[in-house]
């Protein structure tokens, strides 16, 4: 019953599918079932189950070493799960990895940028990798939204950390992905860039996106999500709709959950 409806034809259809209503019949943008992963004898993920509807924004919070980054890497197809399956944008992450990659944008605490290339060259290089049509236009649009227009021809190595992170946002969004995976994107972002990140998440450059974000900053996590999940010690121990969360109560719950596991 919770099976995702087959792969949608185009990312655009996918991302607007649930604009009106979110119900059981809605497309699932991300569907994780029974995913486990270990590094040798150390189990990192112990059976993750997670369903994210198209257009929904989910924040995953948890202490360091809980497995947040590993989970996102598996969804991003750059790490293999030991067991279990996951589908992203309707495609299986192991058997249809290339199709998944086309439809996701990833921002991590590393910018994935080449110091010796200019801002424009970096974004264009990734655009070429994703076969982005009208790349020129797309780069200008993103640069405009992110306040990078006057720095387009500067080498990335000469930019500040905050500016680099903005370029990284442009890189991740260059192919207008319906699903975005953000791994602690707030590290190194200045106030202004955080706002821009939010804007890109909200989809001011086009589509309405499904977002999974990890963070250990509760306030930030709550401010941009529809639903929040707590990942501790390789398990999702709690999920809650944003609308029912009261910050103080949630903070207390969070500390209790993470204490118990230690």
């Amino acid at each position: 019953m919770l099976q995702a409806v087959g792969p949608s034809k185009s990312p655009a259809v996918e991302s607007t599918a649930t604009e009106t209503g979110i119900g059981d019949t809605a497309d699932l943008a991300v569907e994780v079932s029974g995913v486990t992963k270990d590094y040798g004898s150390h189990a990192v993920l112990k059976g993750i189950r997670l369903q994210v509807k198209a257009g929904e924004k989910v924040t995953i919070v948890g202490p360091n070493g809980a497995g947040k980054t590993t989970l996102l890497k598996i969804l991003a197809t750059i790490s293999r799960p030991l067991a279990g399956t996951a589908r992203v944008a309707g495609f299986d992450i192991t058997r249809e990895a290339v199709e998944v990659r086309r439809r996701i944008g990833v921002i991590s605490h590393q910018p994935y940028l080449y110091d010796d290339l200019t801002v424009e060259e970096n974004v264009k290089f990734y655009g070429k990798m994703y076969d982005v049509p009208d790349l020129e236009e797309r780069v200008r649009l993103l640069a405009g939204k992110l306040g990078l227009l006057h720095r387009l021809h500067d080498q990335v190595g000469t930019l500040s950390r905050g500016l680099q992170q903005r370029v990284s946002i442009a890189r991740a969004a260059v192919h207008d992905p319906p699903v975005m995976l953000l791994d602690e994107p707030d590290t190194g972002l200045d106030q202004q860039a955080a706002g821009m990140l939010r804007a890109v998440i909200e989809g001011v450059d086009g589509g309405r996106r499904t977002v999974i974000m990890t963070t250990h900053n509760l306030e930030l996590g709550l401010s941009v999500c529809d639903r929040i999940a707590v990942l501790v010690n390789g398990r999702i121990v709690h999920t809650e709709e944003r609308s029912s969360v009261v910050l103080e109560g949630f903070r207390e719950l969070y500390y209790r959950l993470t204490e118990v596991q230690r």
Binding site: A76, I78, V98, V106, S108, Q110, Y112, D115, M129, Y130
Partner: peptide
């Protein structure tokens, strides 16, 4: 080493390329 410096290799691996 250049690819590894800023995680670029990971960025490449994320691209829909063989």
């Amino acid at each position: 080493i250049k690819e590894k410096d800023h995680g670029c290799l990971e960025g490449l691996m994320l691209c829909p390329v063989d």
